[in-house]
C-alpha cells in the first residue's frame, strides 16, 4: 500500500490561508489503512482547521470518497463543489492529482506527504518495502529488496558499513543485506551472492521518466 503522513499542521494552515470555504476530502484507500487520510482524519482535520482559522471566518466541511485515484469515484463531489473555493485532499499524491485533473477550476491543496510503498509491521507503524524500480529481483535476494531497503540500493552485497546487522546510517536501521545474507544462508543459497550483478537498468525505474503501463489484451485495436 501507499503510505502517507500528515503534513505539519502549520504548513497546511499556511497553504489554506486565503480561502474561505474549504472542503476536506479523505480517501478510502491506502491512506485510510495507514490512518492518515480516511474519513475520520478528514473530520479531525476539519475541526482542527476550523478552530485554527476561527477568527478568519473560514468555513469547513468534510467528506470521504472510496478512492480519490478514480475519476468515476470523484463524480459524487461535483454537486458540492460550487459551495467551496478550495479542496484540501488527504489522499496520496496520486489522488491529489486525480482531483486536480477532474476538477480543473478548483484549487487543490495536499494535506499529506506521500512517503513510500510499504506495510504496517504492527498497528500504527509502517515500513518501506518497495521502490517500484520496475525490474524485480526478489527471487535472487531471498525476498528482501535491496533497492528499497539498503540505504545505498546496492546490488552486490553489503557495503563496509554493515556491522552487527545494522546499517551505517543509524543503529535503528537494519542492514537489508545482512537480512538477505541470513535468509540465503537458511535457504542454502549463499551462492546467489557470489555472482557478479551487473549495473541495473534504471530506465525501468522513475529515472526513465514518468511511467506508463499498458495491460495487453484489454483495449481493442484502433481505440486509444
Amino acid at each position: 500500500m501507499i503510505v502517507g503522513e500528515l503534513k505539519p499542521v502549520e504548513e497546511i494552515v499556511a497553504k489554506v490561508k486565503g480561502y474561505s470555504r474549504i472542503l476536506v476530502v479523505g480517501c478510502g484507500g491506502c491512506v485510510t489503512v495507514c490512518q492518515t487520510g480516511g474519513a475520520r482524519e478528514a473530520e479531525t482535520m476539519a475541526h482542527l482547521l476550523g478552530m485554527a482559522l476561527r477568527d478568519l471566518h473560514v468555513s469547513l466541511d468534510w467528506t470521504c470518497v472510496a478512492r480519490q485515484c478514480e475519476f468515476e469515484l470523484l463524480e459524487e463531489l461535483k454537486p458540492r463543489l460550487a459551495s467551496f473555493d478550495a479542496i484540501l485532499s488527504l489522499a496520496c499524491g496520486v489522488g491529489v492529482q486525480a482531483v486536480a485533473e477532474f476538477f480543473p477550476s478548483s484549487p487543490v491543496i495536499p494535506g499529506l506527504n506521500t512517503t513510500f510503498m510499504g506495510m504496517p509491521v504492527r498497528h500504527g507503524r509502517f515500513e518501506e518495502r518497495c521502490q517500484a524500480c520496475g525490474d524485480c529481483i526478489l527471487d535472487l535476494t531471498a525476498g528482501i529488496c535491496p533497492v528499497a531497503r539498503c540505504s545505498k540500493s546496492l546490488l552486490n552485497g553489503p557495503c563496509g558499513g554493515s556491522q552487527n546487522g545494522k546499517c551505517e546510517i543509524s543503529a535503528e536501521v537494519e542492514c537489508a543485506w545482512h537480512l538477505i545474507y541470513e535468509r540465503l544462508e537458511r535457504l542454502g543459497r549463499l551462492d546467489n551472492l557470489e555472482r557478479l550483478v551487473l549495473p541495473k537498468n534504471w530506465a525501468k525505474s522513475r529515472d526513465g521518466g514518468p511511467r506508463r503501463m499498458v495491460r495487453e489484451g484489454l483495449v481493442p485495436d484502433g481505440e486509444e
Binding site: T32, V33, Q35, G38, A39, R40, E41, E43
Partner: peptide
C-alpha cells in the same frame, strides 16, 4: 464483543 468501543473510535473509515 464487550462493547468497549475502541474499534468505533479508531476505525479510520468510520
Amino acid at each position: 464483543c464487550r462493547g468497549c468501543g475502541l474499534c468505533y473510535a479508531e476505525c479510520p473509515a468510520q
